[in-house]
Write a protein that binds this DNA or RNA. Structure first.
Lengths: 166, 166
DNA sequence: ATGGAGTGTCAACAAGGCTGACGTAGTTGG
DNA sequence: CCAACTACGTCAGCCTTGTTGACACTCCAT
């Protein structure tokens, strides 16, 4: 891309035009990013909120409700509406905390894990294709810019997720 | 980042773990990406939908309603609700098309341009900081991956915006 | 045993998507 | 010149997902 050339000393490349391109790239790419899971979710009567919940419960099984709340950054009323449908449909189950019995530890059921897999397969396929098309160094850069763009608190959530014992 | 090392031949890096990291990076980064404009919009009683409209009208002044519809990917009823408030508040004005009088060409007013500037300044500041932190090659990679992640039709929208004559 | 934390729930509301249907002005093709 | 189509607006109604405020319950910790 000669017209898009980046100065080798890395000072002149921060024009408003470059920044605007980056902003629009985020906008359009995010649309693509969510479109495949959205189709699956739609066909099942779910929305993105369900996807997010299922994703992070799969990511860190045994998570409590308030941990999930803080990751998702929504109110508990909002999350609860979603969690309830997931319970009712048998995708997620809650087990009472062992040491603290007020807590409800969240787990995917077999059925929930199947949905999670379907959703993430779709999303990974797109991500894989994009990674392949762009190449390894591009992927490195992609991740670096995204991490730098997060709020510090969110960056901690991003880096600090681990499995929790019930 | 040694623990994150990418194989120099670029074949082994597409593990599920790498892909999952990329997916979550998109999720958290997008939250950061929208947070600064969101604060400004909130204080004025607007939402993201207003931001998107104002952004693209600024981007390609003289755009018709249906062009904007196709870029935003929403229904006209939805867009109209937003446009009406922008007209009423004097941020956007519509001029009847010169050759085709059915068309309404959209322009920002001085006031609208001021809001657009405030919003994009905030967003650019974050983007600039992320770019600086990540470095020029990272920016290149960032853009490449994002472009590869877009739907082909959206990619055309992304690349093909230009100013339109009324 | 009392305060506070973790959770559920009810009610009410708003933004911003959607569909379907209809109207009006203006353009275009036969 | 008229019929058909296009661009746009609008009304009505629905859904998801977010919000606030209030209240109740269980349980942990001091």
């Amino acid at each position: 891309m000669p017209e898009n050339a980046v100065g080798s000393e890395g000072l002149l490349f921060l024009t408003d035009e470059q920044l605007r391109k980056g902003i629009e790239a985020m906008f359009f790419a995010y649309r693509g990013f969510t479109s495949d899971p959205d189709r699956i979710l739609d066909s099942l009567g779910y929305g993105r909120a369900h996807h997010r919940a299922v994703h992070f419960i799969n990511r860190a099984p045994g998570m409590t409700v308030s941990q999930l709340l803080s990751i998702l950054g929504v109110t508990k009323q909002s999350l609860n509406r979603v969690l309830r449908t997931l319970f009712d449909d048998g995708l997620v189950e809650a087990r009472v905390g062992r040491t603290d019995k007020r807590e409800r530890r969240l787990y995917l059921t077999t059925k929930g894990a199947a949905l999670e897999r379907a959703l993430s397969d779709a999303q990974r396929a797109r991500m894989r294709a994009a990674y392949r098309a762009a190449g390894p160094e591009a992927v490195q850069g992609f991740r670096m810019v995204l991490e730098a763009m997060m709020d510090p608190e969110l960056r901690r959530q991003y880096q600090g997720l681990r499995e929790v014992e019930p």
